[in-house]
């Protein structure tokens, strides 16, 4: 038995450590299926660096690991609200992305963002929005109001899906009620709870995997991220992504370097690499979300470049980018959520 254990350990060590023939390594910690393989191959070839990708399922997993002090990653891809936390808690390496050669390609509107003023810590990776999708074969007309979701007609009752995300759901409800987001006012949240409770009997599920629900027809209306919505429309043309007239949430994922990254130089090479238009276009083609790089349009697939999910109509307001809510708000949100689903 002992020899077996020793053998397995040796096997583990040889298989798991992986060969390190390249001049260096780059450890990326990101969402799954988010990094185009061709982009990785190109980077490896250009810089002779071996890229290793580990994936997380939520920002919280990544945050818990970084906060505990467990390091070892060179690159992370936090959302903009998580960026504000990482910066506040001093968990990021100041890499001065603004001084990098490829920074000139970054679209002006993604330069002086509130989660990273002057791009000291990060570069744009991809961005998108959280609106909702309706099946126009079921919901006729061209209404773009959240009323379809929150005070549904008989045709869609029992065919509604909400994202299983406390912040997205409550912020959307606050918009419908015309109240400020990240709200600390108990009376507003009481109203949110009442609204969501009255909507709940008509909700089929609270699920973030919205594509299968919409395509199968199990759901006729669903909150959705724009990238998901596009993939759903590819399979069912009657689906339409709606930019609600009451407003909607925007998000941006950013490339950043955690404090104590083992190979700061390789990490900086990656950040600069990501800001090149032809590379950024690979992200859009692969993950199907917009990037923030000027000139990338030339390399983006035609169908994507014209997709309504990635191009809000001109009469629609810009998405609202929210900062991470205060602890007091988080606590209120959690109570609403628990009471809704108890």
């Amino acid at each position: 038995m002992k020899s077996l254990t020793v053998f397995t350990a040796a096997l583990l060590a040889s298989v798991l450590a992986g060969p390190a023939f390249a001049a260096g390594d780059l450890f990326i910690y990101t969402w799954g299926e988010y990094t185009p393989p061709e982009m990785v191959a190109k980077f490896e070839k250009t810089y002779d660096v071996k890229v290793h990708i580990d994936t997380y399922d939520s920002m919280e997993t990544m945050l818990a690991k970084l906060k505990s002090g467990a390091g070892g990653y060179d690159i992370i891809v936090p959302g903009h609200d998580t960026m504000t936390i990482l910066v506040r808690e001093n968990l990021l390496e100041p890499i001065n992305a603004a001084n990098m050669p490829n920074y000139k390609n970054v679209d002006e509107k993604w330069r002086d963002v509130f989660w990273d003023k002057g791009r000291v810590y990060s570069a744009p990776w991809a961005w998108g929005s959280t609106g909702f999708v309706v099946d126009r074969a079921v919901v006729k007309g061209n209404d773009t109001s959240l009323k379809i979701l929150f005070e549904p007609d008989d045709t869609v009752k029992g065919k509604i899906n909400m994202l299983r995300d406390v912040n997205d759901v409550i912020n959307m409800a606050l918009r419908y009620l015309g109240k400020p987001r990240c709200n600390e006012n108990p009376e507003d949240l009481k109203a949110v709870l009442d609204l969501l409770s009255s909507q709940k009997p008509f909700v089929k599920s609270y699920n973030s995997e919205t594509k299968e629900l919409l395509v199968s027809g199990e759901a006729a209306v669903s909150m959705s991220w724009n990238g998901y919505a596009m993939r759903a429309r590819d399979e069912k043309p009657t689906l339409e992504y709606i930019y609600p007239k009451e407003g909607y949430t925007g998000w941006m994922d950013n490339v950043a370097v955690p404090k104590g990254a083992p190979d700061l130089e390789n990490a900086k090479l990656w950040v600069n690499f990501v800001m090149a238009p032809e590379n950024a276009a690979m992200i859009t083609n692969y993950a199907r979300y917009s990037n923030g790089i000027k000139g990338s349009e030339a390399f983006v697939e035609k169908a994507l470049a014209a997709a309504p999910e990635l191009n809000p109509p001109s009469d629609v307001a810009a998405p609202e980018f929210l900062s991470a809510c205060t602890p007091a708000t988080t606590k209120l949100y959690d109570r609403v959520w628990t009471k809704l689903l108890r």
Binding site: E60, V166, V203, K204, S205, Y206, T330, K331, W337, R342
Partner: peptide, 19 residues
């Protein structure tokens, strides 16, 4: 369908979104 919580969900949320 995520419409009701069990204690596993509740505890999980406390370590994640509810912080």
């Amino acid at each position: 369908g995520g419409k009701t919580l069990m204690i596993g969900n509740l505890i999980g949320t406390q370590f994640q979104a509810a912080r």
